[in-house]
């Protein structure tokens, strides 16, 4: 073994051990537990591989799989998650695309400040930012106070603990994830192409749809997936702003684990969550590769 090889192994050893033990092994264990039966001990599982009288015993249990497929609770949780994450992505695009566009066309000296202002909330405690919406949306909260004061409504609106509150919180939390990659793409766009389109007689709207939008597609796709993927696994926002009106799949997993102490079921949901998210992720890799070329 050459000195260079030994050196490489030295650098790689600690990361490999850490990642193997704390990233790869937990993943295998979650898979294994999802095949085991719920038990009554501590921890509450009967592991699916055992060791008796010198040879291994297998006790694979697929009850959780049957329950997952038959009980509406889980399917609805998955569908809720996908619907909320999808709507969040769409709303973030509607709000975020104009923002990113204006940021990219702003005077160059202003742009670092504008970007910083989008990044700042991202660094600030997510718990506090979600909590802030409770004070705004509750029945005697700031929004109702303002609307009553302006005479726009005569009765306070019930928003907190409804799906609308969850949706507002989601768009708020994930907007920066969409604006930043989109801004990065738009900022590198060759704006003289728009002048060319105008010179050739294109109206501004038609130039936007035929030039700007197609060229910003990689950033749009990357941003949309950066919103959709984490949004579909979100726990805090549906829990704090939606109470239990709109169970998302992470909330269901949480209840199975902490409430029902059904570890195999919680593990199975975790595995399914991975499978549902793995597909968009493949697209994300492709999207980022394309975005990198623009």
């Amino acid at each position: 073994m050459s000195a260079a090889t030994a050196r490489r192994r030295g650098v790689l050893a600690l990361p490999w051990i850490w990642l193997g033990l704390f990233v790869a092994a937990p993943f295998v264990i979650v898979l294994a537990i999802s095949l085991s039966s719920a038990g009554y001990g501590s921890p509450p599982i009967d592991f699916f591989i055992g060791w008796q009288n010198g040879h291994p015993t297998f006790n694979i249990n697929l009850d959780s799989f049957e329950l997952l497929a038959s009980d509406q609770l889980y399917i609805r949780g998955f569908l809720n998650s996908i619907a909320i994450a999808g709507l969040t992505t769409l709303l973030c695009l509607l709000v975020g695309y104009p923002m990113a566009y204006v940021m990219a066309r702003a005077p160059a000296r202003l742009q670092p400040l504008l970007v910083m202002l989008v990044i700042l909330p991202f660094w600030t405690s997510s718990l506090i930012r979600v909590y802030a919406w409770i004070g705004i949306l509750k029945e005697n909260g700031l929004l109702n106070g303002l609307l009553l004061h302006l005479g726009l409504i005569s009765q306070p609106l019930v928003i907190l603990n409804t799906p609308i509150a969850v949706q507002i919180g989601m768009v708020y939390a994930y907007l920066p994830f969409l604006v930043l990659p989109l801004y990065a793409t738009l900022q590198k766009l060759d704006w003289t192409l728009l002048e060319a389109a105008a010179d050739l007689g294109a109206k501004p709207w038609s130039a936007f749809f035929r030039v700007t939008l197609p060229l910003s597609w990689p950033g749009t796709l990357a941003g949309a997936l950066l919103v959709f993927v984490p949004a579909s696994g979100e726990y805090l926002i549906p829990e704090l702003l939606g109470s239990s009106t709109l169970p998302m799949i992470s909330t269901v997993l949480w209840t199975e684990f902490f409430g029902n102490r059904d570890w195999p079921m919680a593990s199975l949901i975790a595995v399914m969550l991975l499978l549902v998210l793995a597909i968009p992720l493949l697209f994300l890799r492709g999207g980022q590769a394309t975005a990198g070329r623009v």
Partner: peptide, 12 residues
């Protein structure tokens, strides 16, 4: 998803 990471590390 954070719930997946959290659960799997706890099981480990």
């Amino acid at each position: 998803p954070e719930v997946t990471t959290g659960l799997s590390m706890l099981l480990l």
